[in-house]
């Protein structure tokens, strides 16, 4: 099972497979990491994928490929529904990304001037 995961704009190709002896092999961009499936080490890994439907629902994603031209908020900010979060310059248009909900910003994954691809997570909410 090969997955393509983008973290902070960098793309990782991740392949997960079972190895003899109940081990799990995780290949990230060609580098292999082998774990005992039952070890605590595996449990302690930070999840690389979007962890739940709920968090995915709250993530703000890039609507199309472009460049982050301005960021108007910072982490831990309380924002209101409709508040301007950032602008994404794409296809010579300025796209003003606004919040869909009232909430607190957990993490900003992008910087001003950064190129992003459609679907990349830009901002997550608590």
């Amino acid at each position: 099972m090969t997955l393509k995961i983008t973290i902070k704009g960098k793309e990782y190709e991740v392949d997960v497979s079972e190895e003899p002896g109940g081990k799990i092999k995780v290949r990230i961009n060609g580098q292999d990491y082998v774990f005992n499936a039952n070890s605590k080490e595996v449990v302690a890994q930070e999840p690389l994928t979007i962890s739940s439907a709920e968090s995915a629902e709250k993530d703000v994603k890039a609507p199309l490929n472009g460049t982050v031209s301005e960021i108007f908020v910072k982490e831990k900010d309380d924002v209101k529904k409709g508040q301007k979060l950032l602008t994404l310059s794409a296809m010579k248009m300025e796209n003003e990304i606004v919040s869909e909900t009232n909430g607190k910003i957990k993490k900003i994954f992008v910087k001003k001037g950064q190129n992003v691809k459609e679907g990349n997570i830009l901002i997550s909410f608590l």
Partner: peptide, 12 residues
């Protein structure tokens, strides 16, 4: 010409 889109989950 400047086109600006206001976008939430979709273009508003």
């Amino acid at each position: 010409i400047l086109t600006e889109n206001i976008v939430g989950k979709e273009v508003k």
